[in-house]
Design a protein around this nucleic acid. Sequence first.
RNA 1: GGCGGAGUAGCUCAGUCGGUAGAGCAGUGGAAUCAUAAUCCAUGGGUCGGGGGUUCAAGUCCCUCCUCCGCUACCA
Length: 518
Amino acid sequence: MATTQSYYLTTPIYYVNDKPHIGHAYTSLACDALARFLRLDGDDVKFLTGTDEHGQKVEKAAKEAGISAQSFVDKMSQPFRALSPAIGFTNDDFIRTTEARHIAAAQQLWRELRARDQIYLGSYAGWYAVRDETYYAESELIDGAAPTGAPVEWVEEPSYFFRLSRWQDRLLSFYDENPDFIAPATRRNEVISFVRGGLTDLSVSRTSFRWGVPVPDDDAHIMYVWMDALTNYMTAVGYPHTDSSDFKKYWPARLHMVGKDILRFHAVFWPAFLMAAEIDPPKRVFAHGWWTNEGEKISKTVGNVIDPLVLIDTYGLDQLRYFLLREVPFGNDGDFSHQAMVNRMNGDLANDFGNLVQRVLAMIQRYCDGRVPLAGPLEDADEALLRSAQNLITPVRDAFLRQAYHEALDDIWRVVRSANVYIDQQAPWKLQKIDANRAATVLYILAEVIRHLALVIQPVTPTAAGKILDQLAVNLADRTFSRIGPVGALESGTLLPEPSGVFPRFTELSIPSGEGGG
RNA sequence: GGCGGAGUAGCUCAGUCGGUAGAGCAGUGGAAUCAUAAUCCAUGGGUCGGGGGUUCAAGUCCCUCCUCCGCUACCA
């Protein structure tokens, strides 16, 4: 057995001032597929997601709603928690920044920084945008508003500062020594160029509102939301108990998956905080891209926000998961369109793969009494196809570890297509009439190939893959990657259940009565 | 303005250490009929953004220009 490795990966914690949309689902999906892959590969995985619940926006929204901030976030956090069962996310924990465990962790990190003179008290004055939770320089303002369009107000307050300026060189050498820390490469260049441009100390406390983690030993201040929020990644593995088994096992995190908009916080501030506290920084931050909707930028005001739950209703869960991971080189922006979705769902899933499974299982049912056929001597073509399926895990693993999901799926589909070529060349429906043993051999090879395909596609389309493995009578315990190859081979004579399609085609009849996306 | 990335077949993109370009989809023609009207086979004369240079040879290196995108700065 391979040695078990621990792999801790996280989504950002989602800000509760919003409802879950396709962007949240996408980030979590990218983590989920990897988490599932690693578990099947025998790793000890911890996959974390959760909600970010502090900040002025929440405080204001709660006040406007006439409820306490706590009950506001209790309510708003719920849809994010509900996303996991809806989209099949297998997160091991769901953290909320309002939990006691987290407040203790954030305060401890603060104390560590304070004790090392990495935080000092000063004062801050500037244009502050509540909506963005950010200060802007005078020069950044456009017509008296933030570049984002958010209204700004002049705020002058005492503030604690983190000595970020001291970490410029350390960060640059850290990036240099860890070329895989920031992905994709183009984002890495951006971050490095930003840091090279010079870093100023970072304001890390606020006195203008109250909804946050109190600064230790100074009740007038609460912690800057990002310092609070980023700490969640450590909270969930036991911090401040650095001698706990979870912390030792899972920290530093192997991967923080983030949207490209919050890369800087993760790739600059976060490692600086950690190095300043003498804690190991995470291994990797991946900044993925955004989706557009039918070519249009998605925005709330335009009203073209995509609800992932609607897409699941329309196209199916596995279909959506497949589309999101296949359609776009991971890291790039992508466009969601009905046509593209249907092309993937029908072309790749239903026609190429689903139909392959169906025709093979149907022939086994008909020609072999519904039992796993007995293979005779193998010919070159048999061995070539079988080997390509058995070896598939290698490039697929390599792709997953680089978060190159599209490459992994491309590799898998190469084998799917080879199997379709093979079945046509061998024509078992003809062989059946002249050489039943040879037909049985061909069908056995195909069944084994399908077993391998189903095994490796599990992280992306877990439900359908499970159904295929059910139809091959593969035990639940035999669905890990340790069963790849002859060791897990189907046993001739095993009775198989009646096959039924796992990847339905999308037809206009598939459209539910309500309006679809839009 | 600076830094970075990208401009390759109708569309989306691959193209390793330089050797006269590939995949998928779409289109066209054909085969087959086990299968979810699915599959398979055949078919791509693209000035590899423009121009110049190095080289026996450049999509692939150098210079320059154009366009688009990202990050960043500044003037206002």
